[in-house]
Computed example of a mutant assay.
Amino acid sequence: MIAVHVLRVFVDEHGNAGNPLGVVLDATGLTMRERQRVATVLNFSETVFVDHENEARVQLFTSRAELPFAGHALVGTAWLLGRRAGVTPRVLRPVRVADPVSAFVEEGRTWVRGALADAPDWGHVRLPDAAAVDRAAPQGDRWPKHQVWAWLDEPAGLVRARVFASAFGVVEDEACGSATMLLAARLGRPIVVRHGRGSLVRARPAGLGQAEVGGDVILEDVRHIELGRYNTE
């Protein structure tokens, strides 16, 4: 049986909404095929596999393929490792990126800092207002990996956004950290984003081609998967 910690990352002020994330700890015995199968069975936007908790070495998968970097996945993993060890790890080590990803806690929220070059190449589509964002829907290949957004309060840096990600096998990503990091960098300012159904994502530029993303996380469940029930071929 494979134990999966199911988190919700970027919950709002009341612990509602948030993007589901699966985290498998001590995953060293799982093959690439098995990891992909677990991620496919869970069908979250991302599932993380941790090899050696003390090293914070991690591998990220969507339901369809491996990803080098994902904001909500790394924020959630940093939070979970910190909860287990009593202190948030200073870095995470995604296996497909060159440099470690910094992690830290600020005002009770978990943050990560990463290179924008490691993030997927999200497109951004500015819409006239929040109502237009609410009405938006992917149409075929129109927005295969795009964040649609509008200002809620531009002077205050408040944004309304949604992400469509059919290119990664995800129809809509409830709260996308990497797209929000890129948006903050492109806007050149800190932002607070009301994302998806009601998630809350914070992001800001961090200089030298980097950005930070952070928010609140909760543990929802520990789920057990019997992989033998599923075809891993």
Score class of each variant (00 low, 15 high):
residue 75 V to K: 11
residue 69 F to S: 00
residue 86 G to D: 05
residue 106 E to Q: 12
residue 101 V to R: 11
residue 50 V to K: 00
residue 63 S to A: 15
residue 45 S to H: 12
residue 74 L to M: 15
residue 95 V to R: 09
residue 111 W to P: 00
residue 70 A to H: 07
residue 96 R to E: 13
residue 59 Q to C: 11
residue 60 L to W: 05
residue 93 R to W: 02
residue 100 P to W: 06
residue 51 D to P: 01
residue 55 E to G: 07
residue 79 W to M: 09
residue 88 T to L: 11
residue 76 G to T: 13
residue 66 E to A: 08
residue 48 V to F: 01
residue 111 W to H: 10
residue 72 H to G: 03
residue 91 V to E: 11
residue 110 T to R: 11
residue 49 F to Y: 13
residue 48 V to W: 01
residue 99 D to N: 14
residue 99 D to F: 06
residue 37 R to W: 08
residue 76 G to P: 10
residue 70 A to M: 04
residue 58 V to Q: 01
residue 91 V to I: 01
residue 92 L to H: 10
residue 62 T to W: 04
residue 102 S to G: 09
residue 47 T to C: 13
residue 108 G to C: 12
residue 39 A to W: 04
residue 42 L to W: 07
residue 103 A to F: 02
residue 36 Q to K: 12
residue 65 A to L: 15
residue 71 G to C: 09
residue 92 L to F: 06
residue 87 V to Y: 02
residue 84 R to T: 10
residue 78 A to M: 04
residue 79 W to V: 03
residue 109 R to P: 00
residue 57 R to C: 09
residue 107 E to N: 14
residue 57 R to W: 03
residue 112 V to T: 02
residue 103 A to D: 02
residue 98 A to I: 00
residue 45 S to W: 11
residue 92 L to K: 07
residue 69 F to E: 07
residue 53 E to T: 10
residue 58 V to F: 00
residue 75 V to R: 10
residue 111 W to M: 05
residue 106 E to H: 13
residue 68 P to G: 14
residue 98 A to T: 06
residue 91 V to Q: 08
residue 90 R to M: 07
residue 86 G to R: 04
residue 66 E to Q: 12
residue 108 G to K: 14
residue 98 A to K: 08
residue 44 F to G: 06
residue 68 P to Q: 09
residue 36 Q to N: 11
residue 40 T to M: 07
residue 52 H to N: 13
residue 91 V to Y: 04
residue 106 E to C: 08
residue 51 D to F: 02
residue 72 H to M: 01
residue 103 A to I: 09
residue 55 E to L: 15
residue 100 P to K: 08
residue 109 R to H: 09
residue 61 F to I: 05
residue 90 R to K: 14
residue 70 A to K: 07
residue 92 L to A: 09
residue 97 V to M: 06
residue 94 P to Y: 07
residue 83 R to A: 13
residue 52 H to W: 05
residue 60 L to C: 05
residue 99 D to E: 15
residue 90 R to W: 01
residue 46 E to W: 03
residue 49 F to M: 12
residue 48 V to Y: 02
residue 61 F to C: 10
residue 49 F to P: 12
residue 107 E to P: 02
residue 112 V to D: 01
residue 99 D to R: 15
residue 44 F to Q: 04
residue 60 L to K: 00
residue 79 W to E: 08
residue 87 V to E: 15
residue 83 R to E: 15
residue 95 V to S: 09
residue 47 T to A: 13
residue 89 P to V: 04
residue 82 G to S: 03
residue 89 P to K: 05
residue 101 V to K: 10
residue 81 L to K: 02
residue 85 A to Q: 14
residue 98 A to M: 06
